[in-house]
Simulated scan of single mutants.
Amino acid sequence: MKKIVTLFAALTIITFLSACGGGEENADAEEKKTIRFGATSGPYSDMVTEAIAPLLEEKGYEVTNKEFTDYVQPNKALANGDLDANLFQHKIYLESFAEEHNLDLSEVIIVPTAPMGIYSSEYKDIESVETGSTMGIPNDPTNLARALIILEDEGLVTLKEDVDPLRASLNDIVENPKEIQFVEVEAGQLPRLVDSEDLSMVPGNYALAAEMDLLSALALEDMPDDYRNRVAVKTEDLDAQFAKDIKEVVESEEFEQIIDEKFEGFGKPQWMKEEE
């Protein structure tokens, strides 16, 4: 009888522990059905709420989206666990920020991104640009390099043959046939220069914030994927089911259809072009 009582007690303990373990697993499963996104206010926050979240909700997720007004807090919030994913940055910024702040973050997938463009209230096309025209350009190295590549693509300048396209500067210009006079300002101020200067280079996010029509640009950037925004998560979550599901919905035809309808002018990443 003593052995039977002992065996019964042992089985009871095992059953209790198994039930507790199962409860923890169920709790974890439920937690993973909530995805806390973060994005900078504007088009990428809109992309989360209008394109990504609805498709994730169809998969049974509850999606929240926190808007940020700076480019520092979204990565810090992701790293400390306040967010599960964010969407606001390109590869160069993600990698440099993570290295500088010792964060372990990784990209999940590249998304369509608003390109930089050449805008003007003076000219209707690139061919009309006159000698001596003034042009607003960004004064930060990353956006300046992008601007110079666009200018070279449009035949307005020629850069050194061996220049790194991600690090081009005004010193790398070897030909400027239109003798364009460059006015360097902070990128966020460039929409204002569309009217005060002959031309202005405006990054897509700032153009949209100023309610500019991307399709009104004289030329739009053929953006390298390194400059396109991406969904990021903590590296330890790359293989988590929620990260795989984010990637799956972004790769879906439904997502691309929403982009085509609501995000006109956004440049598609290479992976999306290859599927067309």
Score class of each variant (00 low, 15 high):
residue 165 P to G: 09
residue 166 L to Q: 05
residue 166 L to T: 09
residue 166 L to M: 08
residue 167 R to I: 08
residue 167 R to V: 14
residue 167 R to Q: 13
residue 168 A to K: 03
residue 168 A to E: 01
residue 168 A to C: 10
residue 169 S to W: 01
residue 170 L to H: 01
residue 170 L to V: 05
residue 170 L to K: 04
residue 171 N to T: 12
residue 171 N to M: 07
residue 173 I to V: 05
residue 174 V to W: 01
residue 174 V to M: 04
residue 176 N to W: 05
residue 176 N to M: 06
residue 177 P to I: 01
residue 178 K to C: 08
residue 181 Q to G: 09
residue 183 V to I: 14
residue 184 E to Y: 03
residue 185 V to D: 07
residue 187 A to W: 03
residue 188 G to M: 00
residue 188 G to H: 02
residue 189 Q to E: 07
residue 189 Q to K: 06
residue 190 L to D: 02
residue 191 P to C: 03
residue 191 P to S: 00
residue 192 R to I: 10
residue 193 L to E: 00
residue 193 L to D: 04
residue 193 L to W: 00
residue 194 V to A: 03
residue 195 D to W: 02
residue 196 S to M: 02
residue 197 E to M: 10
residue 200 S to G: 07
residue 201 M to N: 00
residue 201 M to H: 04
residue 202 V to T: 05
residue 203 P to C: 00
residue 204 G to T: 08
residue 204 G to M: 07
residue 206 Y to I: 03
residue 209 A to T: 15
residue 209 A to E: 12
residue 210 A to E: 12
residue 211 E to H: 07
residue 211 E to K: 10
residue 212 M to L: 13
residue 212 M to E: 03
residue 213 D to I: 06
residue 213 D to R: 04
residue 214 L to R: 07
residue 214 L to N: 07
residue 214 L to D: 06
residue 215 L to P: 12
residue 219 A to M: 10
residue 219 A to C: 04
residue 219 A to H: 10
residue 219 A to K: 10
residue 221 E to W: 11
residue 221 E to H: 08
residue 222 D to Y: 12
residue 223 M to E: 03
residue 224 P to E: 07
residue 224 P to M: 14
residue 226 D to S: 15
residue 226 D to Y: 15
residue 226 D to W: 13
residue 226 D to E: 13
residue 228 R to M: 15
residue 229 N to T: 11
residue 229 N to P: 08
residue 230 R to Y: 12
residue 233 V to C: 10
residue 233 V to D: 09
residue 234 K to Y: 03
residue 237 D to T: 09
residue 238 L to E: 10
residue 239 D to I: 15
residue 240 A to H: 09
residue 240 A to Y: 12
residue 240 A to I: 13
residue 241 Q to K: 11
residue 243 A to R: 11
residue 244 K to Y: 02
